[in-house]
């Protein structure tokens, strides 16, 4: 009897858990479109692969941002890092091979994260302001770097590796999503590093008192965030066979919304990688579903907002009733 009560209680706990929220929303929206678009190709394997491929860079950005949010920082510079890393990668590919180009592009991410982190810690200013500033600087550099020119990529190995490739019938972009998502999941759930990350976000004073190097952990989290954005830049470049200063520009808000809807706290201490990935896929599904439903652009915008609000409302209700 007692044991039963407990398991019931536990079930309730799971249902009430903030992380469960995204599942309700995700499946609600999926169900909704599956019904509305039953006579189109919405519910086909290739359509879902499309969505996964389209959202791959966003997913990687979302996973990275989850790290920054876990320690209680926001990183607004990720969109601009996408552009700069893609441009740097594409430019390097004109002179060297893939390894150096990739290294150079990722180094953009590491450097930006390091600068963000050091500025935040040294100046003791909110990450919102610092990364807003670096976002402007990086956007400017990206625009300046090629004088607004787009840089084509003709290296087919590169476009295979970061864009159109398939491994064992699986799109390589899905593979990237799963590998990066899997690593992030393990770090946050299974490794001491993730524990410390969340501790710093949950209660920095306590974390410091327990001997955790709070400053260093925050720095690592910001580096993870912008390095993931740099990788997203490479994925864009691979997908588009070239880089352009506008890449990633429009992604920041989508990524923040996806991560938040996925159950990660915007104020630190709670992070959910699976939620972040489902969150970006959700955005992709809504986008895809609305295009397939034949709405005009303006109608799509309105419908996107309405669906998000309804989905969130239903998710909240389900959880309350849980």
């Amino acid at each position: 009897m007692n044991a039963q009560m407990l398991s019931l209680n536990q079930l309730k706990q799971i249902a009430l858990h903030r992380e469960a929220f995204i599942y309700y929303i995700f499946f609600f929206v999926l169900f909704f479109f599956a019904i509305v678009l039953h006579d189109t190709a919405f519910l086909t394997f290739s359509n879902f692969m499309n969505i996964v491929k389209q959202t791959a860079p966003l997913t990687i950005m979302a996973v990275g941002l989850t790290f920054a949010l876990a320690v209680g920082h926001i990183d607004l510079s990720i969109g601009s890092v996408v552009a700069l890393s893609a441009l740097v990668g594409a430019l390097l590919l004109q002179h060297t091979g893939i390894p150096l180009a990739v290294l150079g592009a990722l180094l953009v991410g590491v450097t930006v994260g390091l600068i963000n982190g050091l500025l935040i810690e040294r100046l003791q200013v909110s990450s919102l302001l610092i990364t807003l500033g670096t976002m402007g600087i990086i956007t400017g550099i990206a625009r300046q770097l090629t004088n607004l020119e787009s840089v084509p990529i003709i290296n087919q190995d590169f476009t295979f590796l970061f864009g159109s490739g398939k491994v064992l019938g699986m799109p390589i972009l899905l593979l990237w999503t799963l590998v990066i998502g899997g690593c992030a999941y393990i770090i946050l759930k299974k490794l001491a590093a993730g524990r410390h990350l969340l501790a710093v976000g949950g209660n920095p004073v306590a974390a410091r008192a327990m001997g955790i190097k709070v400053t260093r952990i925050r720095l690592y989290a910001l580096i993870a965030s912008s390095t993931a954005a740099a990788l997203a830049g490479l994925l864009y470049a691979g997908r588009l066979h070239g880089a352009r200063y506008t890449l990633g520009e429009a992604d920041l808000l989508t990524v923040i919304a996806a991560v938040a809807i996925g159950g990660t706290s915007l104020f630190g201490g709670r992070a959910c990688i699976v939620g972040a990935i489902l969150g970006t896929w959700l955005m992709g599904i809504i986008n895809n579903g609305l295009i397939l439903s034949g709405f005009s652009t303006n109608e799509q915008m309105i419908a996107r907002g309405v669906i998000l609000v309804i989905a969130v409302a239903i998710g909240v209700k389900e959880i309350r009733n849980g």
Partner: peptide, 26 residues
Amino acid sequence: KVVAVTDAQFDPAKQVADLENISVLN
């Protein structure tokens, strides 16, 4: 019948996604 209208917002990445999305409508 016009089954889809898309707007790339001058973003090539968005246009690539748009093309993929409309492709499933054949």
